[in-house]
């Protein structure tokens, strides 16, 4: 039987979908253009606190996207190549990243969910947690050690 989630949070589904993965959490915003390598999933913004870490297949939580509008193309390409995060949890839904997920769905029939979570919820996530996102925006969190 599946262990009971440590916490269950209600987020707004921005781009609806189901995903599960290990959390990668940052309190810093990030620009996917110049910050995310779509061929590997590595965070390549050398000024970012997660510089050098790999977000492919992870549930990637950060406050908001920023910087160049080319970020959507980077996200689409990473989805096409299978090197995208499993899902994005954002404090503020970002039109640029949301569009990337929608177009990937229209073009390739595959995508990643994006949810918008309030600041209190964001504060309860930590890197290494196991996170599942459901289509209605429910975010279930298990402790990383389980």
């Amino acid at each position: 039987m599946e262990p009971i989630a440590r916490i269950v949070l209600r987020a707004r589904p921005v781009v609806s979908g189901v995903a599960e993965g290990q959390a990668l959490v940052s309190s810093e915003s990030i620009s996917f253009w110049g910050g995310y390598d779509p061929t590997t999933g590595e965070i390549v913004d050398r000024r970012h606190e997660l510089s050098g870490q790999n977000a492919a297949g992870r549930v990637f939580a950060f406050p908001h996207g920023r910087g160049s509008s080319t970020a959507s193309a980077v996200l689409i390409e990473s989805i096409r190549l299978g090197k995208a995060p499993a899902a994005l949890i954002l404090a503020t839904a970002d039109s640029i990243l949301s569009l990337g997920a929608i177009i990937a769905d229209e073009m390739y029939g595959r995508s990643i969910p994006i949810v918008e979570l309030n600041a209190e919820g964001m504060g309860r996530l930590k890197t290494g947690d196991r996170i599942r996102i459901d289509a209605d925006g429910t975010v279930s969190v298990w402790d990383g050690r389980v």
Partner: peptide, 13 residues
């Protein structure tokens, strides 16, 4: 701005 990053995805769309 869609001309800014040459990727297969961009060309496909």
């Amino acid at each position: 701005d869609g001309c800014g990053f040459l990727s297969q995805a961009g060309l496909d769309i």
